[in-house]
Design a protein around this nucleic acid. Sequence first.
RNA 1: GCCGCUAUCGUCUAGGGGACUAGGACGCCGGAUUCUCAGUCCGGAAACCGGGGUUCGAAUCCCCGUAGCGGUACCA
Length: 481
Amino acid sequence: MARMGARSYVNRVRVRIAVAVEHCAPTMMAEDPPIRLRFAPSPTGALHIGGARTALYNWLATRHSGGELVLRIEDTDRERSTEENVEQILDAMRWLELSWDEGPVSQASRSERHGEALKRLLDSGAAYRDSATAKEVEAWKQEHGADRGYRGEPTDEPGAAVRLRVPDEGETVVEDLIRGPVSFPNRSYDDFVIARGDDSVLYNFAVAVDDAEMEITHVVRGDDHLSNTPKQLLVLAALGHAPPRYAHLPLLHGPDGRKLSKRHGAASVQELRDAGYLPAAVRNYLALLGWGADDDATLMSTEELVERFRIEDVGRAAAIFDEKKLRWINGRYMREMSLDEYTAAVASYLGREVDERLRAACEIAQEKAQTLAEVWPLIRFIFEPPVEDEKSWRKVMKEDAGALLGAAREVLAGIDEFDARTVEEALTPLPERFEVKPGRLYQSIRVAITGSTISPGIFESVAVLGRDESLARIDAAIARL
RNA sequence: GCCGCUAUCGUCUAGGGGACUAGGACGCCGGAUUCUCAGUCCGGAAACCGGGGUUCGAAUCCCCGUAGCGGUACCA
C-alpha cells in the first residue's frame, strides 16, 4: 500500500514517454504535460552539500521530464537572509552547472500576494488573530495534554499574530512520491501562526501560497520538511488550491552519523570547489547519495543521469557524505578528460594562463592526481626552483649520489634530442654500470630536480624541465653534496 | 513529552516471498606492475538492528521493541 502512490506515478511517466516517442520522437519533450519544480533555498548561509543535492535532484527531475525549474529564494526571515548569501547560492548553482528556467524569485518580494491570501483567510474565518504568547500556548498544552495541538481564542487586539484554524478531527495525508502516504492526526497540530503581529507572513504560509500561485506541480525537498507539509496542505485547502505532488528526500549526515555541518570538512559547495573537485564529478557523486541506477552503475555522465534519474527511485534512509568516494570518482573524471580540458581546468583552478609549458606539465601529471588541488605539488618544480625538503635529501643523497648524478649529467648533456624517450635511453644503462638498483639513480635525479621524492615519471619530468634547467639543478645538487 | 520518518558490509547501495552460498562500488587488507607517489590489474575480509508473528518458505509482509534522525518558533 505504501508503494501504490509511487507506482501509479511511475506507470504514468512510462506511458507518457512511450506515447511521446511514438508520435513525435524529435521533439518528444514538447508534448509533455507541463511539469514545474522549484528549488527554494533560504539564504541563511552557504549552499551546503545537502542543499546542493536537493538542487541537483530538482534539476535532474526537471530535465528528465522536460519541465521547468523555478529558483525561489526563501527570504521571509529578513534578519538572517543576506544579499551575500543569495549570491553565494547562485554562485554555487552556476559552478555546479545547474541551470534554472525562472527566477531567482525573492519570496519577500511577493509579500503583497501573501497579504491578499492572508486577508482572504481572515475574512472567511479560516484564520484568526490570537494574542497568546509562547508561554500561554505551553500552559494551554499542559492543561489539554501533550498530543493535543493548541487552539486559541479570536481577538481584535491589534498586533496579535494570525493563526490558521486546524480541525480537531481527521488527519492530513501527505502523498509522498518517495515514502507513500504519510498521515498526520490533525489534533496533534497547533493552530499554527501564519503571520506575525505586523501581518508579515511566515514560512509555511508563504511556501504554500507561492507553490500554488507559481503553479508548482512537484515539490522535491529535504525530509526535514515532511512534518511541515500537513501545515502547508492545510493552508492550501483553506485557500482552495490543489496541492502539488511531494517528494521528501532523506537527509544527508556527516561521517559521524550526525547532521552535516562545518566540522565535517568540505561541507559547502564553495569548499568542494576549493578542494579541487570537478563539477561533473560532484554531480555524479551527489546523484548517488540516496539514489542508484538499477544496474548499480557508478560512473554516469550528466546526460546519463538525466536520462536515468527518477525521483520515485530515491531511497528512504539518510545517507552519510563520504569524501573518499567523491575523491575516487573525481580521479576517474580527471583521467578521462582530454588534455585540453584538463589543462584548462588546472589553469583555472591555479589562476594561471594556459600555455605550452602548463600543457606539458599537465600531460605528465594527469594520471596521478585525484583532485585539481593535487596537481600543483606534482608540477611546481617545472615553474619554480626545487622545494626545500631536508628529509627527502637525506633519504636519497647517499655516498654514491655524486657519482650517479655526475654520470647522469654527462649522458644528458650528450644527447641530441631531449624528450622523454631519449632521456630514458640515455639513463637506462647507468644503473647496471654502477651496479645499483635503478631506483637509486632515479631517486637521486628526482630529488635533484624537484627537491622531493615524489614526482611524475622521471624521464618525463626531466624532459619537460628541459636540458638546461635539468643540468643546472643536477650541478647544484652535486655541489651541495 | 508529543507527532512523524528511517533501519542490508566501515560508507553508498542492489534486493519488491523461493533465482541469497545476500550482489556491485568506495574504503580497507594482500599480491602483481613501475624509477617514487599515484594509477592500473588480480585476490581477500566485511552486512540483513533485536524479538515476535504471517507463510511450506521472510533481507523482503505485519506487530512490538531499540536506535538514529526530523518536526513540534510571531526561524526557514
